[in-house]
Design a protein around this nucleic acid. Structure first.
Lengths: 228, 228
DNA sequence: CTCGTCGAATTGTTCAACAATCCGACGATT
DNA sequence: AATCGTCGGATTGTTGAACAATTCGACGAG
C-alpha cells in the first residue's frame, strides 16, 4: 500500500477526531442553507426534488432527508403532495420571531455571564465598529448577528444557542429587502455599544432593559419595511 | 360508481378540511414519540432501522425520515454509521433544559395575556386539583404540563409554543424515574395556584417571580433525583 | 496479553418502480 | 361566454432491492 492516496485515510482520521464526517444529506442541507442565506433562493420559491437531486448529483431520497432538516428549522415548508417551498414570513411571523428573541436574549442577558463571555460580546461590538469604518455593509450585518449570538451565549445553554441560530437563520430569509438601506444596521451600532457597556459595568438588568427597547424598535422597523 | 366505498372519499374530504392527512413517516414518528413518552423505550436504547420497519410494516426509508423528525426534536440522537439511540440526558442537560424553561416561561408570563388565555391557565390548575383529589398521578402529571403550556401560550407565539412542546417532550424522557415518588407533582399544586392567582390579580411580574422560584426548586429536585 | 485481521451486521446512499395527488388545459353543458 | 367536470402530465410519497462503507466483536498470530 503506497502513501500517495491520503484521501480515505485522512477522512477516517478526521472522523475519529471530529466524531463524524458530515453525511451527504447534511452537506445538501448545508448547501441549500447557504443559498437561502445568500438570497439565491427567495421566499416562496419551489424546490423540486428531482431538480435539486440532479444539480447536486445525489439521490432523490437524500434530498428528501435534507428537506426534513430544513423543514425542522422552518427554513422551508412542506405542502404535502405539492412540494417544499422556501419559507416566507407573514407580518404576524415577524412579531412571532421577535417574541422569541425577546424571551431568549433578554433572559440570557439578565443572567450576566463570565468575563470571557462578556469579552465575546465586546468583541462583536468592535467587529461591528470596524465594519462600519470600512463601509462594509455585509460585514456589519454578520457582526450584528455575532453580537446577538454572543448575548445568548451568556446563558451557556446549548439549547438556547441553537434556538437563536434558527431564529437568525429565519431572519436572514427576509432581511434581503431591508439591506437596501445602507444605514439600516449602522443605526444599531450605538445600541450595541450601550448594551455592552451596561453589561461590562455589572448592570445586566439595565442592559436587558436597553436590549428590550432595541428589539421593540427593530421589530417596528422590520414591520414597516415588510409590507404594512 | 357506488356509494359503498366511503374510505378514499372520506380521507380526501379530511385532507381538504385539515389541509393534509399525516404522512406515513409522520405516523411512524408519532408512534415512536408515544412509546418514548410512555417509557416503553428507555434512554440509551438503540433503535434499529430494519426492526422498526418490520414491526410497523413500513419501508426502511420511511423509518429514516421519521428518525430525522425525532432527531430534530432531540428525542433521539444519531451516531453516524452506528445507529440512532433514545436520547439520554446528562446532569448538565437538566440545567440546560431548565435554562430554556426559565427564559421562555418567565417571558411569556411577564407579558400578561388575554382573559381567555388566563382562563386556560386557571383551567389547568383546576385540572390538576381534580387529578389530585382522584389520586390519579398520571393525570396530575399531564395537568402540570398543561399548566406550563398554558403559561407559554400567554405570549401567543407559535414558535414559543413549539419550543415549549419540545422541551416538555424531552423532559418526559427522564421523568419516569421521578414519578415513583407519589408526592412529586402534588407539591407543585400550591405553586401553580399561587402563580395563577397572581396572574389573575393583574400582577404578572409577581407571578413571574413565583414561577422563577418554582423552576429553580424543580431543577434542584430533578438534579437530586437524577444522579448527583 | 496485545495487536491485527476477518466477517457478520447495520447504516448510508442510490436506483427504479408504482400509487396517490395536484394542477392546468381542454372540452362539454347550460 | 362562463362554469363545471374530466383528462393527462408532472411531482410527490412510499416501497423494495441493491451495494459500498463502516462498526464491532471474535478469532488467531506474534
Amino acid at each position: 500500500m503506497t502513501t500517495s492516496d491520503a484521501g480515505p485515510r485522512a477522512l477516517a482520521a478526521a472522523a475519529r477526531l471530529r466524531i463524524a464526517v458530515p453525511s451527504v444529506a447534511d452537506r445538501v442541507a448545508a448547501e441549500l442553507r447557504q443559498q437561502l442565506a445568500d438570497g439565491v433562493l427567495l421566499p416562496g420559491t419551489r424546490l423540486t426534488e428531482s431538480t435539486i437531486a440532479e444539480d447536486l448529483g445525489v439521490s432523490r431520497n437524500t434530498v428528501r432527508e435534507a428537506f426534513a432538516e430544513l423543514a425542522a428549522e422552518r427554513l422551508v415548508v412542506r405542502h404535502p403532495n405539492r412540494g417544499v417551498f422556501v419559507a416566507s414570513l407573514a407580518p404576524g411571523d415577524i412579531h412571532d420571531v421577535y417574541t422569541v428573541r425577546r424571551a431568549v436574549e433578554v433572559a440570557a442577558l439578565r443572567g450576566g455571564g463570565s468575563p470571557e463571555q462578556v469579552a465575546a460580546v465586546r468583541a462583536a461590538v468592535e467587529e461591528g465598529r470596524a465594519a462600519a469604518d470600512a463601509d462594509d455593509e455585509e460585514a456589519l450585518g454578520t457582526a450584528n448577528q455575532h453580537f446577538h449570538r454572543a448575548i445568548v451565549a451568556l446563558a451557556g445553554s446549548r439549547r438556547l444557542d441553537t434556538i437563536m441560530s434558527q431564529v437568525l437563520a429565519e431572519m436572514r430569509l427576509f432581511f434581503h429587502k431591508a439591506t437596501v438601506d445602507a444605514h439600516f444596521y449602522r443605526s444599531y451600532l450605538a445600541d450595541n455599544e450601550q448594551i455592552c457597556a451596561a453589561l461590562e459595568a455589572g448592570e445586566p438588568d439595565r442592559a436587558a432593559d436597553l436590549l428590550l427597547a432595541y428589539l421593540d424598535r427593530s421589530e417596528q422597523k422590520q414591520s414597516a419595511v415588510h409590507g404594512e
